[in-house]
């Protein structure tokens, strides 16, 4: 591939052609560098890093649409990288721009790799940019390992597993892509939402965006909502539209942490009614034991085993005596006996 520097008229550059573009609108939001700021920088320091352009063959049969805004209908150059720089220079009223030109014989995959390198070595690409880059490269590489090798050399670290996920993300709904790009939801959640029906995905997306739960909480919420939808033969949206859940989501009195906690509690009560009922019974009996604060009764995990334990904090003999007396009192306590027997009332049948 032959590369050379030249100064070309900006009007000859076709910025509508995004064939090699991998930068997303969200990238600017993340970096905080607006087009205005870039223009100001260029005005002060000049164009430090010239964009890369591909010169179209002179007899190219491909023509641009007539009346392309801002671009000549006979543009000679396609942008490989530097869209924002060109836009900034155009905004400054420049008519010509110094650029690096690739000749028309340059192969597309090589130009794509230049576009990736130019971005990836300057900043961390967001997941959507990685997805776009992966999708564009996949048009030219049938072997995913070869693709990963070339992308890696261009600064985009991929492996076949990640590649597969990125390609899936590239097919997801635009709203999901946007939140992944902004890092409001993880790739894992993005893909999980992408696999849902659109109205279900968008509703969950809205909730996650508003409450910003941790990844584990997002996973837990999603898992419970999916299971409830399946169990009740309804959509996920219908599960989330239950009156009690809506009341929590629409509450204006409390902060997002309260909402997350309440949402999880409600979902858990719907998903695991027997467990929640049993835990409630246990808690009621345990409360009646009136244990001192320094003494805690720990039930078997999920009540599956039979081994209970106590945890007690003390620093003096007097403290210790208080604990021992409390323990002694328990021996014949009816609530303690029922706890050990796990003998609670059954969940009332509806």
């Amino acid at each position: 591939m032959r590369l050379f520097f030249d100064t070309v008229p900006i009007r000859d550059i076709d910025t509508r052609d995004t064939f090699y573009k991998i930068t997303t609108a969200e990238a600017a939001e993340i970096t905080g560098l607006s087009g205005t700021a870039l223009s100001a920088s260029i005005q002060q320091a000049g164009l430090l890093s010239p964009p890369v352009l591909w010169r179209r063959p002179k007899d190219a049969s491909e023509r641009l649409p007539e009346n392309s805004p801002g671009d000549s209908p006979n543009s000679r150059y396609r942008v490989v990288c530097g869209f924002r720089r060109i836009a900034a220079c155009r905004a400054l009223g420049w008519e010509r721009i110094h650029a690096r030109i690739c000749d028309s014989a340059a192969p597309d995959p090589d130009l794509l790799l230049i576009a990736i390198s130019d971005n990836a070595f300057h900043r961390k690409l967001n997941l959507m940019e990685q997805a776009v880059a992966a999708a564009k490269l996949s048009e030219y590489f049938k072997d995913s390992r070869a693709l990963c090798r070339c992308a890696g050399a261009a600064g985009l670290a991929l492996n076949p597993g990640l590649l597969e996920k990125l390609l899936e993300l590239n097919q997801a709904d635009g709203a999901i892509q946007e939140k992944v790009a902004l890092d409001r939801i993880s790739l894992t959640i993005g893909l999980a939402l992408g696999a849902l029906e659109k109205p279900d995905a968008l509703m969950l997306l809205e909730i996650f965006d508003a409450l910003n739960p941790t990844l584990n909480h997002q996973k837990e919420i999603l898992r419970m909502v999916k299971a409830l939808a399946r169990l009740n033969d309804v959509t996920l949206k219908a599960v989330l539209s239950a009156e009690e859940i809506r009341a929590v989501l629409e509450d204006t009195e409390h902060d997002r942490n309260w909402k997350i906690r309440e949402l999880k509690t409600l979902l858990r009560r719907m998903r695991y009614p027997e467990m929640v009922w049993f835990e409630k019974q246990y808690a009621a009996h345990a409360a009646r034991l009136k244990l001192p604060e320094a003494l805690r009764l720990i039930p078997p995990r999920d009540f599956e085993g039979n081994r209970f334990s106590f945890q007690g904090d003390f620093s003096t003999r007097e403290d210790f005596t208080v604990l021992v007396r409390a323990l002694e009192r328990l021996r014949d306590h009816p609530d303690f006996i029922r706890i050990l027997e796990k003998d609670f009332e059954d969940l009332p049948v509806k």
């Binding site: 299971a227 399946r230 169990l231 998903r271 695991y272 009614p273 027997e274 467990m275 049993f278 995990r301 999920d302 009540f303 599956e304 085993g305 796990k342 609670f344 059954d346």
Partner: peptide, 25 residues
């Protein structure tokens, strides 16, 4: 199938089992 959406807990052998009070009932 809905069978994997029961009220399961991880048993002491690592297998998922119905919550014990539910099993007993």
């Amino acid at each position: 199938s809905k069978i994997v959406y029961g009220e399961f807990v991880r048993g002491i052998d690592g297998k998922m089992r119905y919550f014990k009070p539910l099993r007993i009932r």
